[in-house]
Write a protein that binds this DNA or RNA. Structure first.
Lengths: 102, 102
DNA sequence: AATCTATGCATAGAATTTCTTTGTATGGCA
DNA sequence: TGCCATACAAAGAAATTCTATGCATAGATT
């Protein structure tokens, strides 16, 4: 869904620190396979979020003993998440009012 | 809201044939001033929709005696609207599942 | 008569986001 | 040994949206 990728990533990271691949899996899982984040969207998005200091990352090893870059939500990221959730609700409500006026 | 402009336009036109300016006013009105469609977004969108034969247009005079291009939903446009509404609901539900898992 | 405001269409250019494609690399399993 | 799943990343294209600008006219105001 266009415009919601940052929100989805931030929300996923608010539950657990994860690497990129895991974030994509989580989003797919919790959305019941409806949302599938392509790698070409995911990694640039993570880089943008890190540039904005909403997440920070470091190389670690996965439980499967594979090297991966883990992303953690920053304090600013948490604030942004709250705002982004509110924005999303506000916009969805507005669109729904146009689709189904009272 | 990114990705929803075509949907909003098609829905608005499904209620009445309108000119561009009127479409923008209607969307603003029914969304309670939350959604404001800029002209630079609106007119290209209308041209795209006409290219895809989802709407058709002609010059007419408004009740205020001003020349304006009126857009009417085509049969294909009605079909697309139904599909777009379903897609929107499906995607919004999916995002909401990620935001607030059961 | 001149000016202002609202109406109305349109394009050019930029910015942003997303997707497609491609490349690299490795762990585990058959 | 070869394959599959995991994992990151960049390059380039495509699509959408916004900003800014321009043109034009009706009606109201001054």
């Amino acid at each position: 869904m266009p415009g919601t990728l940052d929100l989805l990533i931030l929300k996923t990271l608010s539950r657990q620190t994860l690497h990129g691949y895991g974030i994509a899996q989580q989003i797919k899982l919790t959305s019941n396979d409806v949302l599938e984040v392509e790698e070409g969207s995911l990694y640039p998005a993570l880089q943008r979020l890190e540039l904005k200091r909403l997440v920070q990352s470091e190389w670690r090893m996965t439980p499967q003993n594979r090297r991966a870059r883990f992303y953690e939500l920053s304090a600013a990221g948490r604030e942004r998440l709250v705002a982004a959730e509110a924005d999303f609700d506000r916009l969805v409500s507005a669109v729904q009012r146009v689709l189904r006026p009272a």
